[in-house]
Design a protein around this nucleic acid. Sequence first.
DNA 1: TTACTATTTAACAAAAGTGTTAAACATAAT
DNA 2: ATTATGTTTAACACTTTTGTTAAATAGTAA
Lengths: 194, 194
Amino acid sequence: MATRDTGTEQLIKDTAKHIFFSEGRLHATTQDIADAAGVNRTLLNYYFRSRDTLFEQVVKEARDEMSDIIDSAFSAELPFKEKLEKLIAVFLDQAMKFPYREMYVVSEFNRSEKVVQDAKKTKLKTFLNEIKIEMESGKIKKMDPRQFCMNLFALMAYPLITSCLNKSLYSINDVEYLKLMKERKQLIFDMIYQ
Amino acid sequence: MATRDTGTEQLIKDTAKHIFFSEGRLHATTQDIADAAGVNRTLLNYYFRSRDTLFEQVVKEARDEMSDIIDSAFSAELPFKEKLEKLIAVFLDQAMKFPYREMYVVSEFNRSEKVVQDAKKTKLKTFLNEIKIEMESGKIKKMDPRQFCMNLFALMAYPLITSCLNKSLYSINDVEYLKLMKERKQLIFDMIYQ
DNA sequence: TTACTATTTAACAAAAGTGTTAAACATAAT
DNA sequence: ATTATGTTTAACACTTTTGTTAAATAGTAA
């Protein structure tokens, strides 16, 4: 049977993503999502059969989106320095849009005993090798390349995960916080690359 | 009425903390906690009246414990360098024990619109000032002291939050990961202090 | 117009989790 | 030995959330 695409299925997913990944409301119910999308709750079951299915789809897509971003930066045909700058810029832009997305993916990863695909690992290894080379040429402080990678992602992701707390701690508003986060693109690069 | 202390109330709290903060099982039910503690579920209601009460107590204690650790490092009568080393050592030790605790506190902070006490803010400001002085004396790369602080906590907390993912990504076991985390004490210090 | 698809409504069933109660049992303190 | 407290058991009520169904309505395409 031919199905008309009214975009509602996508709307539901996008709304769920927004609630989960932008607002960080991890415990939102199907009713919450339906309300936010402006549709009837029954429609969620109509399109996704169950909450779990919707949830899985959304998390899988989130994981893929993040994966794509990182992979495309990892595999870019660029000198290491530019590659690094690109990665930071793209990752931070995404993380500003969906500050809780990574946390979500990570916590789902914990629950489900998922394994990272070999293809990803290979790409990561290539990146780790490039880091090693850069270290040998003195462009990066010498250390375990894995530590370098952890540092990089820590510096990028953490301040966005904790944005709410930080805003309160430093008594700053959204606009100012956004400014701080934008400044971090250069700052992170300067911290890890000489 | 005189009450005998059998330690069971504490056992329940400790078990809850372990499940939440060490295992990262954010959605554990009262039954899960009772089972893990080896007691009857009814006892949770007996001691804490409701799940929420238990939950609040545990999160409040977690927040206080973290607060104490950070405050005691912030307020230590030590030169800045040693203060920093102490903070890193103590924070990482704690974070290794309870890798998800901070995440929990942060996500509860998001939900509850909690405000940071002024006393905390004052201590933080003092620390930020010390950072500024250290920057002026050239011991720390010049930047917004708040950025420095965010960097510091990012480098400390993030790799533990993502330990499960990292272990899979880098194909390493618990022992090796622990070794990496211990190495980070020196590594973080070296990254942010010259 | 007809037919088909999308969406809503309402009502209900089923499941999961939580809170309560009363009775029984265990055990340490007096 | 008695008493008070800690703990278990079982049963049940309540709430929240989810999943299902059938019928009604709206809208679009043929």
